[in-house]
C-alpha cells in the first residue's frame, strides 16, 4: 500500500515537472519571438509550439548521465534535461559567455561532454553521433544509460537517418529515436515526404521496437516516452517513437505557415498540448489555478532576468577571437593565413 502511494506521488511529480518545463519553454519561445520581431536576434528563431508535451516527456525521463540530441523544437526537453535558461538566451543573443560563445547560435547549442549534443543543421546527422557516444560508453563498461535523438518526419527521408538507425540496431545500442511527425517539413506535407501508411511500421524493417504516441495528449506522452526510454535502458535495443502532432507555428518566425489548412488547425491534431496538460493536472488534483499562476510568474521572472543579464554581457570581440578551428596547439602555430 505504502509503495503504491509513493509510486503515484512520483508519477504526479514527473507530470508536474514536465508541465513546468513545457510552460517555461513556451514562455521562453514567446520571448525569443518578441526579441526577433524587435530585431534583437540575428538569424532565425524556431519555436516548439505544439511539441512541448512530447519534448518535455523525453527530458523528464532522462538522467544527467544520459545522452540527448534535441532538434529545433525541443526547448521543453532541453530544460527538462537540465539546460539553464541562460544558456539558451546567451546562444540566441550570441553572448561571448554562452556555451557556443557567439560562434554558433539559436538552436545550435549544447555541452557535448555533458551528453548534451549541439545539433548541426543537416537532418539525421546527429543520430549516428548519439550512437557513437553510446558505443564509446559501452566500450568503457558503462551501462544503464540511454541516448535520445530527436527528428521530425522530414528527416526520415534522409540517408543519414537510415544509416544511423540500422547502425544502432546492428550494435543493439540503447538509442531512442523520437520522430515528431508535425505534418509539415517546412512547407512539405507528409504525402510528399513518405508513402508508407505509418512511419512506425518502418521499425520492423530495422529490427527495432516501435511506439506510437498522440503527442497532443500530455499524459500519453509521459507514459509512452517513459516506457520507450525504460525499454532501451533495460537493454532491449533501439526504440523508434513516432509521435503525431501539428506544428502550431511557422517553420521559423519568418514563416506565417499559410500552407497549413484551417481544417487541420481546428481538428483534434491542432489541440494545444499545454492546455491539455493544464486540464490534466487540474483534473488529477496535481495543480490548481493559483499554482499555475505562481509557476507562470516564476518562469517569466527567470526569463526576463536571463535576457537582461545576457544583454548586459559582452558580445564576442573579433580582435580577441583566435580564428583557429584546430584543437592542437602545435598545429595552430602553422595555421593557414593566406
Amino acid at each position: 500500500m505504502l509503495q503504491t502511494v509513493s509510486e503515484s506521488r512520483a508519477v504526479g511529480e514527473t507530470q508536474r515537472a514536465a508541465y513546468r518545463c513545457m510552460l517555461r519553454a513556451r514562455l521562453l519561445d514567446d520571448k525569443f519571438a518578441a526579441l526577433y520581431r524587435a530585431g534583437k536576434i540575428h538569424g532565425g528563431v524556431f519555436l516548439g509550439r505544439g511539441q512541448e508535451a512530447l519534448s518535455a516527456a523525453i527530458g523528464v525521463h532522462l538522467n544527467k548521465s544520459d545522452v540527448f540530441a534535441p532538434l529545433i523544437r525541443d526547448a521543453a526537453g532541453r530544460l527538462a534535461f537540465g539546460e539553464p535558461i541562460i544558456d539558451a538566451v546567451r546562444t540566441y543573443l550570441g553572448s561571448a559567455l554562452g556555451p557556443m560563445r557567439g560562434r554558433d547560435g539559436n538552436v545550435h547549442r549544447g555541452r557535448p561532454q555533458a551528453g548534451y549534443l549541439p545539433m548541426i543543421s543537416h537532418l539525421g546527422a546527429m543520430v549516428s553521433v548519439v550512437n557513437g557516444v553510446l558505443f564509446a560508453r559501452r566500450l568503457k563498461g558503462i551501462s544503464g544509460i540511454v541516448g535520445v535523438a530527436c527528428l521530425g518526419e522530414g528527416a526520415t527521408s534522409t540517408g543519414a537517418f537510415h544509416e544511423a538507425l540500422n547502425q544502432a540496431a546492428v550494435e543493439k545500442l540503447p538509442l531512442v529515436l523520437v520522430i515528431a511527425n508535425n505534418q509539415f517539413a517546412y512547407s512539405t506535407p507528409t504525402n510528399r515526404q513518405f508513402a508508407c501508411a505509418d512511419l512506425a511500421d518502418r521499425a520492423a524493417g530495422y529490427g527495432v521496437e516501435s511506439h506510437s504516441v498522440d503527442a497532443t495528449e500530455f499524459s500519453v506522452c509521459i507514459e509512452k516516452l517513459g516506457a520507450a526510454i525504460a525499454r532501451a535502458r533495460a537493454g532491449h535495443g533501439p526504440q523508434l517513437v513516432v509521435a503525431t502532432l501539428l506544428r502550431l507555428c511557422g517553420h521559423g518566425e519568418h514563416d506565417d505557415a499559410g500552407y497549413i489548412a484551417p481544417e487541420m488547425k481546428n481538428s483534434p491534431l491542432g489541440r494545444d498540448c499545454l492546455k491539455v496538460a493544464e486540464e490534466f493536472l487540474l483534473k488529477k488534483n496535481l495543480a490548481d489555478a493559483a499554482q499555475f499562476a505562481v509557476w507562470r510568474s516564476e518562469a517569466i521572472r527567470e526569463i526576463e532576468d536571463a535576457v537582461a543579464q545576457a544583454q548586459r554581457e559582452p558580445a564576442p570581440d573579433p580582435y580577441e577571437e583566435k580564428w583557429s578551428a584546430l584543437a592542437s596547439e602545435k598545429l595552430n602555430e602553422l595555421r593557414e593565413e593566406h
Binding site: V129, L134, A136, A160, E163, A164, N166, Q167
Partner: peptide, 22 residues
C-alpha cells in the same frame, strides 16, 4: 561496420566526444 560511411564517421565523432580515439 555496415556499409554506412555517413554513420561510420558520425559514430566516430560521438566516440571522440567521449574521449576515445577512433
Amino acid at each position: 561496420s555496415p556499409i554506412s560511411e555517413d554513420a561510420m564517421i558520425g559514430l566516430a565523432v560521438g566516440a571522440a566526444i567521449e574521449g576515445l580515439r577512433p
